[in-house]
Design a protein around this nucleic acid. Structure first.
Length: 478
DNA sequence: ATGTTC
């Protein structure tokens, strides 16, 4: 099949509906046509076309500049399904339910950090289990029930959060759960084993310096104050619990008589929200999201402990959460479709919410809009952006979530020598603590798209504004 | 992403 691309503008590429007669809406990739049409994007582009064929899809099958191939949906994909069609597709959320990124503001500057860099990185590595290391929180079986039902509220009760953390976490860190019964025994068991752990692959904890501030007033609102200020970014998800939930529901739905079959890809099958299995999935997805929030919060708490111990003149309370964002979740939102407000089940998979200020009334971000935290690869830079009104018009209030893979894990593993990657990172003044050599290859900076180009694309398309640029000082990986 | 091969 020939996919027909046309440039809507310098940074917006449309996939014409004539590409395939089964498309219900066009595709929209927020990236220049020259980048979109590269050979390495071929499979992911086909997935954008496939998503455009889904029942109930409104507006467009959307992909961010960091899009790449995933399970059914591309990673970096956004799809709003009309609530009147009443369906949800687990492939549109993915295996790592509510994977996300939290950004911690610190009172430390880079000189303080560099003077104690080794002690601090060692302390973080002692406090936070990474890779295959198991949980050091001894959560009892009945407590996992509270965590999956209550999310960040339970972390607050457990002394892992401050009051202010809730208003600075997307959805206040709590997803609505009517029943936890859909989270299997196995999922709970895996959840207990790995609560409070970072994970592996692209998950990381990174100590960063503020290297550029583009919008000082907005940056202050996000607790980014000075050049050289140290920030801590934590990227992690719902570990084995979310994985188990995703796996079980994808399998169950494949064999379910009520499933809504996709015309070309079984991985894009959906399930009616008003079915028993649909309700069980929504609840279990939300349970996994709550678990992910508790998990990230426990590592924020460990980071506060490590820093305030190494820098005794500071208190844990001074390490304030800038924002915690979700990038793998489906939730109901209202968006304008053909000029009319429409209730949509918005699936974001490797994409973030990027609402403008007018959609953030009553929250901590009503003045400037929803923060968008965009981690780059471990050797380059990360960005903090803010949502725009144009994102509401164009991208269902969404933006990009990271650099996005350019190379498969397998290919990256074969292409990069870990020793050379470590040397190159050291040459750039970045201290890398990784548990396994393999992760250094598969996560090598060269296996990712260029983060500066990704951000240039979303800013150029108008769906976000750039607030600050952060560069890595120390990286902890699984 | 993932007790890294359901």
């Amino acid at each position: 099949m020939q996919i027909k691309l046309k440039a809507d503008s310098e940074f917006i590429t449309e996939i014409d509906m004539s590409s395939d007669s089964r498309m219900r809406v066009p595709g929209l990739v927020f990236s220049p046509i020259g980048d979109v049409s590269r050979d390495s994007n071929e499979q992911a582009l086909q997935q954008v076309v496939n998503v455009a064929m889904m029942q109930g899809i409104a507006k467009a099958s959307i992909a961010m500049p960091d899009f790449h191939w995933g399970y059914g949906f591309p990673i970096g994909g956004v799809a709003g399904i009309r609530m009147e069609d009443g369906i949800i597709s687990p492939g549109g959320v993915g295996y790592d339910i509510n994977c996300g990124v939290s950004l911690l503001s610190t009172p430390i500057n880079e000189h303080d950090f560099n003077a104690r860099k080794n002690d601090l990185m060692d302390s973080l590595l002692r406090k936070i289990p990474v890779g295959m290391e198991k949980s050091r929180l001894r959560i009892r079986e009945d407590h996992i029930e509270s965590i999956i039902g209550g999310g960040l509220k339970i972390a607050l009760e457990d002394g892992l959060a401050f009051d202010g953390d809730l208003s600075r976490t997307e959805d206040s860190g709590q997803f609505r759960v009517e029943s936890t019964a859909g989270v299997s025994k196995m999922a709970r068991k895996r959840g207990i084993s790995f609560i409070g752990t970072l994970g592996s692959g692209n998950h990381f904890l990174e100590v960063q310096r503020v290297s550029e501030i583009f919008e000082p007033e907005i940056a202050r609102d996000f607790l980014i104050h000075d050049l050289g200020q140290v920030m801590v970014m934590i990227h992690s998800g719902s570990r084995g619990l979310g994985h188990q939930v995703a796996l079980e529901f994808m399998t169950e739905i494949q064999n379910h008589p009520e499933k809504i079959s996709h015309p070309v890809d079984r991985q894009l099958d959906s399930i009616p929200l008003d079915s028993e299995v649909g309700q069980r999935y929504i609840n279990s997805m939300n349970c996994s999201a709550n678990y992910a929030n508790y998990n990230r919060q426990s590592m924020i708490s460990a980071t506060r402990e490590a820093f305030s111990k190494i820098f005794p003149s500071t208190d844990p309370e001074q390490y304030r959460l800038s924002y915690g964002i979700s990038h793998n979740i489906a939730r109901e939102e209202i968006h304008k479709v053909n000029g009319e407000n429409s209730r949509l089940m918005v699936h974001r998979k490797g994409a973030t919410r990027a609402f403008s200020a007018d959609r953030m009334g009553g929250t901590a971000f009503e003045k400037f809009g929803h923060p968008v935290i965009v981690p780059g690869d471990m050797g380059t830079a990360s960005y903090v952006l803010v949502g725009t009104e144009a994102s509401s018009e164009l991208s269902l209030g969404s933006s990009c979530h990271g650099a996005g893979r350019e190379m498969s894990r397998k290919k990256a593993g074969e292409s990069f020598n870990p020793e050379e990657v470590i040397l190159e990172m050291e040459r750039r003044g970045i201290s890398l603590r990784a548990k396994y050599r393999s992760a250094i290859s598969t996560e090598a900076p060269g296996s990712y798209k260029n983060i500066d180009m990704v951000v240039k694309s979303v800013v150029g398309a108008g769906i976000a504004r750039v607030v600050a640029r952060l560069t890595p000082l120390g990286v902890l990986k699984g």
